[in-house]
Amino acid sequence: MTDTATPLISLTWTDHITGRRGHLVVDRLVRGVASGGLRMREGCTLDEVAGLARGMTMKEALHYTPGARYIPLGGAKGGIDCDPRAPEAYGVLVRYLQAMRPYIAHFWTTGEDLGLTQGLVDKAAAEAGLTSSIQAVYPLLDDEEAARRRLADAFAVEVDGIGLGELAGGCGVAEAVLAALDRARRPYQDTRVALQGLGTMGGATARFLTRAGLRVVAVADAKGTVANADGLDVEALLAARDAFGTVDRAALRADDVELPGDAWLSTDAEVLVPAAISYCIDSVNQERITARWVVEAANMPVRPEAEALLTARGITVLPDVVVNSGTNAWWWWTLFGDIGADADEALGHIRRSMRTLIDLMLARAEADGTTPRAAAHALVADRLPEIAARYGWYR
């Protein structure tokens, strides 16, 4: 996929107070900068972060459009091995950012990911002495002040109670689902969806799919799975979430049912959307899946051996590197000025771009006789040399 499997930078940090560990992997630099969020979860490993960083290289390359103001960056990722709900979590986050300050200041732009909200990252970054978690990209901007104001204005936009920054990724995931359905000529109103996760990505995805006419019949969170064969009241569930995407069960209707946490896997639905954690679908539990499509809203939710087994059973896996790339791209389209701080403009741009990518990937998979993931990798392999020819492999 890339010119080398070895990242440019790979390091592990140990917190001197709690002993918690954090990781940073920079897979690639373009114009001296790499992009990738910071996640916090119990059990986060260096290998996990390396895989995510490589995925970010792919996401950036897939959104390369000659002539656009946004020039894709390199790929990177950060991770902290700590439960974000733990009492010591915020202090660990601040100290991690203090330790990573030289990297963030000069070549790693980061932001929210699993376990962390952008608001919390911004607060901790300020406490760690950083101007911004994305300050490394500022030297690449034509007008830094206008760009920063435009992004801040975009984050202030809300649509029906949910911020545009939260909606961007889910809009892209939903469009990936809709594009796949359109290619299969499947009516939206006959399509049922089960999601794992109702946080930033899962919640927005559920909203957009419901508003497109699909029926969300199951949602899993930290307390278990909530299901209704006739369709859940997605807006009520979104309004009843806490900061970690857990739904207050008091908001459930009389005919909603509570099931075990892993029940979402075997829900009678055509589309399965893992939107919470990595590695949640393995070679064993994949046998429970009867959906026609598994759409990776989370990063790396399907293990490679599980994907091979799903593919052999005729189940299509739409890969994370394409499906959930909308959030990252929206940041940079806005900052560099390809779009403004307007919900209709932003969501329209995301839909068009994601539709183009999904159609290109699926057409390539069909032509090559490969999986969508292999097709996405092939598209990246085509684009990276073009980017390198213009901007170099490392600088």
Rank of each mutant, 00 (worst) to 15 (best):
I315R: 08
A243C: 01
H23I: 02
A388I: 10
A50I: 00
P139V: 02
Q118K: 10
P301S: 15
P304K: 09
G115V: 08
A152H: 04
A86G: 04
E305C: 11
D3R: 15
G326E: 07
I358F: 03
Q196W: 01
V273C: 13
A378Y: 02
C44Y: 07
L93T: 02
E366C: 11
G197V: 06
A147P: 11
A34S: 12
I281Q: 00
G224I: 07
G202F: 07
P84V: 06
D3C: 09
T200E: 09
R31K: 14
W13V: 12
A126C: 06
G161S: 15
A381W: 02
G161F: 13
A50P: 01
L310G: 08
S266A: 15
C82W: 01
D342V: 08
A381M: 09
A298S: 02
T57H: 06
S35C: 13
R183S: 14
T316P: 02
R351G: 05
L178C: 00
R192A: 14
A124Y: 06
L46Q: 09
L116S: 10
G22V: 10
A124N: 05
Q196V: 05
M40P: 00
R150L: 13
L46F: 01
E42K: 13
A99F: 07
V193D: 06
A365C: 06
G37F: 00
F244R: 02
M40D: 03
I162T: 12
G161H: 14
G19N: 12
E158D: 09
T131C: 02
A276H: 09
D83F: 09
D368I: 00
A378P: 07
H377T: 10
D81C: 05
L120R: 14
I104M: 13
E258G: 01
G369E: 14
L309V: 11
R148D: 11
R69Q: 14
P72V: 10
D81R: 02
L93M: 07
A180Y: 06
T316W: 01
E60G: 05
A343D: 08
R69V: 08
V216E: 08
